[in-house]
Amino acid sequence: MAESSRAFTPAAWAALRAQLEREVNATSAARMRWLLTFAEATGLRAAELLSVQRGHPQRRNAVWWLRVHGKGARNRAVPVPLAALAATVAYFAARGLAFESAPPDTPLLASTTSTGALTYRSLHETFKRFVARALRHSELPFAERRDAQTASTHWLRHTHATRAAEVGVPPEVLQANLGHADPRTTAGY
């Protein structure tokens, strides 16, 4: 991990995924599994993840898209890969809901104690605790573990962008998906 990087390395990401299998609360594990999968696939900001509702993903020509009202009041369409959609369906099932028939205003990311949306603060604190548990069980080198301990939910977005750049997603496509106004921001990946 580069010193200035705010993306999880593949090894740190594997530690997060491994932690999902150790989670004792099935509902919390389902929510975290959804968060890791959906954020890695879409690169949404935490505030965007918190505002997405069941009625927002739309299918066009066999591809699922999510209309996002993002930072700077800019709108964009973000593709939702099938893995992210499958994770959403599974997460809804873990909450006792059928994705296809859930009311359109049902939040994709919900509190484990109610059917309502999760707050930004709760998401941040829950994610920090999850990362801490994962790192306790990991065999990551000290420097990598130290860096990952500073992670916030925004690291999920950076992880998405870093992995996309590594596999050769064109910069203009990545810029559009992330909603960056300035291509220099995207070029950092």
Score class of each variant (00 low, 15 high):
residue 67 R to I: 02
residue 107 P to K: 01
residue 139 E to K: 01
residue 65 W to V: 03
residue 157 R to F: 04
residue 2 A to F: 12
residue 176 A to D: 10
residue 109 L to Q: 00
residue 88 T to Q: 12
residue 73 A to M: 08
residue 2 A to K: 15
residue 18 A to N: 14
residue 158 H to K: 08
residue 85 L to G: 09
residue 23 E to R: 06
residue 1 M to E: 09
residue 28 S to F: 10
residue 185 T to L: 13
residue 83 A to P: 10
residue 56 H to N: 14
residue 107 P to D: 05
residue 55 G to V: 03
residue 157 R to G: 03
residue 161 A to N: 05
residue 6 R to W: 07
residue 178 L to W: 01
residue 128 K to A: 14
residue 48 E to D: 03
residue 66 L to G: 03
residue 188 G to D: 07
residue 54 R to Y: 06
residue 13 W to K: 08
residue 165 A to P: 04
residue 103 P to S: 10
residue 94 A to P: 10
residue 126 T to D: 15
residue 165 A to V: 02
residue 90 A to M: 14
residue 141 P to W: 01
residue 144 E to T: 05
residue 66 L to S: 01
residue 161 A to S: 13
residue 132 A to F: 05
residue 48 E to R: 00
residue 108 L to P: 00
residue 46 A to E: 07
residue 102 A to C: 08
residue 19 Q to W: 02
residue 5 S to I: 05
residue 142 F to T: 10
residue 188 G to W: 11
residue 58 Q to W: 00
residue 22 R to E: 11
residue 98 A to P: 12
residue 44 L to G: 01
residue 88 T to N: 07
residue 133 R to L: 13
residue 141 P to D: 13
residue 145 R to S: 13
residue 91 Y to E: 11
residue 90 A to Y: 07
residue 110 A to W: 00
residue 31 R to K: 06
residue 43 G to Y: 01
residue 155 W to G: 04
residue 179 G to T: 00
residue 161 A to Y: 02
residue 8 F to S: 07
residue 54 R to W: 07
residue 62 A to H: 13
residue 21 E to T: 07
residue 83 A to S: 15
residue 54 R to P: 02
residue 99 F to C: 06
residue 174 L to P: 04
residue 29 A to P: 03
residue 128 K to V: 13
residue 136 R to N: 13
residue 124 H to K: 09
residue 93 A to W: 07
residue 65 W to K: 04
residue 159 T to W: 03
residue 140 L to F: 01
residue 171 P to R: 11
residue 77 A to L: 15
residue 173 V to K: 08
residue 49 L to I: 14
residue 15 A to Y: 00
